[in-house]
Nucleic acid binder design. Structure first.
Length: 716
DNA sequence: TCAATCCGTATC
DNA sequence: ATACGGATTGAC
């Protein structure tokens, strides 16, 4: 029922009129009379009986005979709704693009060319849909629309779709052993090429000891699950294309999600090179309604075995799904901003869990969530050995805590430390391009110790301290306590200051520091995909770094201070993710590739960059989060609304044992925000409790809404 | 005692 | 939204 009210978030039974007996199949859109109104709905299941004792009404009409909602997706949507304390209707709105009638009739159902027939059993589920119901349809219109338990209530999966080691181990899905030898040890000291696909079935997965085994498992139709740390200079899109190709060769379909249009273009090109044209579709919100629906239909009808896209594709139907993949899962674009705010990584992992598909979570960096997958044994890591890492990695140097500015006056005005200036000059002399990464402005400035720059955290709850306006007394953004007598735990310092980002001007100033060198910028307004080799400066904001054919001679990471002091739980992780993404575009040290990061080399994220060891950092990060009780070690939900509404919801909620309330802190005007924290083992119970409580309120027609967000991207 | 009305709740 | 049931109220 397309009614986003929590207390109506369940199936309702309707009679199927005999003229719709054939066409009203599960997965179709229908119109029904509900509480005196005509509303849209989903036909979830046909059944011969109904548990409802009241009188049943007939379906009003069939919107279209196209069964757009695949059974697998119906189950997935229910699981996602449950995980995020949301409604099925909301998730289905995200999962199935709006119907485009003209497209639907234009694109007459061609015979499925790509993949062996499949569908209801998408993947390998024996228990998918119950009661297809012929009988009811033919004779009397007494069939019912009822998904009820079949698709609904995913057995309490403990922590939900996330890593739940116990339930994760299935015969077919056991992570492929990272078998040791076999692969060429004497890899020639060849440069990582920044373009091009290697010959051989394993492609360049050979650079990772367990890589070939992963590909073999995919090609063998098995379901390995991997967290992949890409080497510097890695052509990740080609590797993804190879993994997808292996999956298709193994007789399955694949789905890959990337963060933005640029990554999508790259993957699209790589996939076309490997699979040939017409074997995949791309799905993104940017396509527009008609093309989006067309691509969706092609996938739904099984005409292509592979779907790639941005997060709009995370629910895409894929016949015989054999692999779900996500690249750079730490990018916050993977978080859906519409209710119930699901994250692409979690959705894809849920799909892997539900269908027994393989999973690939890759990036130059590793998120704490990915680390959790590794540590719980849900997935195996695919990493290169240290010797290979060293061979591929540029030379990374920190400028130290108090960077000495370059002597050159022009460089000094650009706030360029001498180390950075020299690295850039050397690269330009060698006729190599130089990448300069500067943070975008607009970050909420956190406060940190003036002396040692340690970010200031609340002594009570470890939340971030902030200076509200001109007021000199810092307060906690989580629990609202005022930290009047704050003393830095590191150095005892008592003075705090806000981090201020000055970014844009740097770009212009850089041009002056290197007269005669062409300067290009890539950022929000205009994102460059690729720049030519040869001497030149490229100033880019994080995420907008163009690639260049031979790799950059030098990469400068400026104003890292602003990244590191963001008022965000993930500041360190995010800084490292952005640095690695930029540094990965540099040539290896053996080719003179250099990276200069303007930061203190003692800081953990900087250390991780120097060593090029994202796994090590992720392990530290996850350990910290465990200690502090932060996600993903704990599960959190935020409740936002007027104080009365939030209190009302909490009063109605039967929170699980051990639930902790943090806050309130002021949110938008007249609004406040509460955080609820539970151990991971209570995650499902928390979501259930919040959803029921929301149901109590919608049933009562409470006027003031409360926004419930499980795993909010930003905790403050 | 009965009907008009109010309120809360369910909605196939 | 609207329809319904049960409780409440007020007039006969």
């Amino acid at each position: 029922m397309d009614v986003p009210l929590a207390h109506l978030d369940r199936p309702f039974d309707y009679l199927v009129p005999s003229e719709l007996a054939e066409t009203a199949q599960p997965g179709t859109r229908v119109r029904v009379r509900f509480a005196g109104q005509l509303v849209d709905g989903w036909l979830l299941e046909r059944a011969e009986t109904s548990a409802h004792d009241g009188r049943l009404t007939y379906l009003e009409r069939l919107v279209s005979p196209e069964p757009v909602l695949a059974p697998e997706i119906a189950r997935l949507a229910r699981a996602v709704a449950d995980r995020y304390a949301g409604n099925l209707a909301d998730v289905l709105r995200l999962a199935v693009p709006p119907r485009h009638a003209r497209t639907e009739s234009q694109v007459a159902a061609r015979p499925a060319a790509a993949v062996p027939p499949s569908d209801a059993a998408a993947g390998s589920r024996p228990d998918a849909a119950v009661a297809p119901s012929e009988v009811a349809a033919g004779s009397r219109p007494d069939a019912a629309v009822a998904p009820s338990d079949a698709a609904g209530a995913p057995a309490d999966v403990g922590a939900g779709p996330g890593p739940a080691p116990a339930s994760a181990t299935r015969a077919g899905a056991a992570p492929e052993r990272a078998d040791g030898p076999a692969e060429p040890a004497g890899e020639p000291a060849s440069r990582p090429d920044h373009a091009g696909v290697d010959a051989g079935p394993d492609g360049r997965w050979r650079d990772y000891p367990s890589g070939p085994a992963f590909l073999r498992a995919l090609a063998g139709g098995r379901a390995p699950r991997a967290v992949w740390s890409a080497l510097a200079g890695e052509d990740w899109a080609a590797r993804y294309a190879e993994a997808i190709e292996a999956t298709v060769r193994g007789g399955h379909g694949a789905l890959a999600v990337v963060a933005d249009a640029r990554d999508l273009d790259r993957l699209d090109a790589a996939l076309t090179a490997v699979l040939g044209p017409g074997r995949h579709v791309t799905l993104s919100a940017a396509l527009g309604p008609s093309r989006r629906y067309r691509a969706f239909l092609a996938a739904r009808r099984g005409q292509v075995p592979v779907v790639i896209g941005t997060r709009a594709a995370m629910f895409a139907p894929v016949a015989r799904l054999g692999l779900v993949a996500i690249w750079d899962d730490g990018d916050d674009l993977h978080a859906e901003p519409r209710a119930p705010y699901p994250h692409a990584r979690e959705v894809l992992l849920t799909r892997a869990q539900l269908t027994g598909a393989a999973a690939l979570v890759g990036g130059y960096a590793r998120s704490a969530e990915a680390q959790l997958l590794v540590e719980t044994g849900w997935a195996r890591e695919i990493v290169a050995d240290r010797a290979t890492v060293r061979r591929r990695t540029p030379l990374v140097t920190p400028t130290g805590d108090d960077p000495q500015l370059a002597r050159d006056p022009a460089a000094a005005t650009a706030r360029l430390p001498s180390l950075a200036w020299e690295a850039a000059r050397a690269a330009l002399r060698a006729d190599a391009p130089v990448l300069v990464q500067v943070p975008r402005r607009g970050y909420v400035p956190a406060v940190a110790c003036v002396q040692c720059r340690t970010p200031a955290r609340c002594p009570h709850c470890s939340g971030p301290l902030a200076l509200a306006g001109a007021r000199a007394i810092p307060g906690c953004r989580w629990c609202g306590r005022v930290a009047a007598a704050y003393a830095c735990p590191q150095c005892g310092g008592r003075r705090l200051r806000a981090a201020v980002v000055g970014a844009r001007r740097t770009a212009e100033e850089l041009g002056r520091a290197f007269p005669g060198v062409p300067v290009r910028t890539s950022g929000r307004d205009e994102v460059l995909g690729e720049v030519p080799g040869g001497a030149g400066l490229v100033v880019a904001t994080p995420g907008a770094e163009p690639v260049t054919a031979g790799g950059y001679g030098a990469v400068l990471l400026l104003d890292s201070w602003a990244l590191l002091t963001r008022a965000d739980l993930r500041a360190g992780e995010e800084a490292l993710r952005r640095w690695l993404a930029a540094a990965a575009l540099a040539r290896p040290a053996s080719d003179g590739g250099r990276v200069v990061v303007v930061a203190d080399g003692a800081l953990l994220p900087v250390q991780a960059l120097l060593r090029w060891d994202p796994a090590w950092f992720a392990a530290r990060e996850l350990a910290d989060r465990r200690e502090l009780g932060f996600p993903p070690a704990a599960r959190m939900a935020s409740l936002t609304g007027t104080p009365e509404a939030v209190a009302d919801l909490l009063a109605a909620a039967r929170l699980p044992d051990g639930a902790e309330l943090l806050g309130p802190v002021p949110a938008a005007e007249e609004q406040e925000r509460m955080l609820v924290r539970v151990p991971r083992s209570r995650a499902a119970a928390l979501a259930g409790a919040l959803h029921s409580a929301a149901g109590v309120r919608t049933a009562r027609k409470a006027a003031q809404p409360v926004r419930v967000q499980v795993d909010p991207l930003a905790l403050f």
